[in-house]
């Protein structure tokens, strides 16, 4: 049979990688070995930043990527990381449902077939001190790694500091950075309690990792194989989301257990952050045009 190598950016033990491995196994079993999918976690084949392009140009037939990282290329890819728009797993699912046809189409135009998407646990705010209002954030050195996080820093009066992933631990330990927006899972995996004290479960957004295939490779498969892949993809999205929920509870408890103060932001802070969210949603809508507006309108009209 045929073999599909599937590059994945995160460590093998990360739940996205585990979901991907189960998805690969499902296809291999489901096709009776006619199509074997082999996952390569930890960026072993291509680093995260290269995976989308590698799949687009047929260097690998399938891969996984955090699409919101590509919003410089197309603002629509950032729909799932607009802060404070969809703030729960339920909302995230509704937003994804509203966006899926559009994203399917954008990716199809890029020679990609979208298979499934699994959210990260909700993004919260990490600090090395207690923060009760946006005023408390003034001047705090905040890790920004893309335009959204840089803009968030600007709106909250924090100082955006660009630190590459490899240097995060050392940067926190020595105070080069003092704050970041990330999921409880990332904070837990990176053991941020060694340098940070507070995690505010602001539930800012639930960005997703997307698994997509090269359209030519996809077209080269027979219908039966494609049906197996689609079925495995649906299963993976369902199971991966369940894993994300489970992992959220696990990691947030883990942060507490390791001595961090984990709480929801206070009422004042929540209101201020919501206002910033409105601003950033409006800015995103301006960048993303009619397609973006359609997504947000459909999401807001949810029952």
């Amino acid at each position: 049979g045929e073999t599909w190598d599937m590059p994945m950016a995160y460590a093998a033990s990360n739940f996205h990688s585990e979901t991907g491995a189960a998805f690969a196994q499902c296809i291999t079993t489901g096709t009776g070995g006619d199509l074997e999918v082999v996952t390569h976690p930890s960026g072993a084949l291509f680093s995260g930043a290269d995976i989308k392009r590698a799949v687009q140009t047929g260097q690998v037939p399938i891969g996984e990527r955090l699409l919101s990282a590509h919003q410089n290329e197309n603002p629509l890819f950032g729909f799932d990381s607009i802060p404070f728009l969809a703030t729960s797993f339920e909302d995230s699912a509704a937003l994804w449902q509203a966006a899926r046809p559009t994203i399917d189409q954008v990716l199809a135009d890029q020679n990609l077939v979208l298979l499934y998407a699994v959210p990260w646990p909700p993004q919260g705010l990490y600090f090395n001190k207690a923060v009760d209002s946006v005023a408390d954030m003034a001047g705090v050195k905040f890790r920004s790694y893309n335009t959204t996080t840089a803009r968030l820093a600007e709106l909250t009066g924090m100082l955006p500091v660009q630190i590459e992933a490899a240097e995060i631990s050392q940067a926190f330990a020595t105070g080069v950075v003092e704050s970041m927006m990330s999921s409880g899972a990332t904070g837990y995996d990176r053991k941020v309690w060694e340098s940070l004290s507070h995690f505010y479960t602001a539930d800012a957004s639930l960005p997703r990792n997307y698994v997509f295939a090269n359209a030519d490779a996809w077209d080269g498969l027979d219908d039966a194989t494609r049906d197996v892949i689609t079925a495995c993809a649906d299963l993976a999205e369902y199971a991966g989301t369940a894993r994300a929920m489970e992992y959220t509870t696990f990691t947030v408890t883990g942060l507490t257990r390791n001595g961090m103060t984990v709480t929801a932001p206070g009422d004042a802070l929540t209101a201020e952050l919501a206002a910033i969210g409105e601003t950033m949603t409006a800015e995103w809508l301006e960048a993303a045009g009619d397609d973006g507006r359609a997504i947000v309108d459909a999401f807001k009209a949810r029952p």
Binding site: A11, A12, S13, A166, S169, D189, K191, S195
Partner: peptide
């Protein structure tokens, strides 16, 4: 320390780079 290899090792197995 600092060590590139230990950073890469730490990230790929989710262990504390400081440790």
């Amino acid at each position: 320390p600092p060590s590139l290899t230990l950073i890469v090792y730490g990230v790929s197995i989710n262990e504390s780079i400081t440790r």
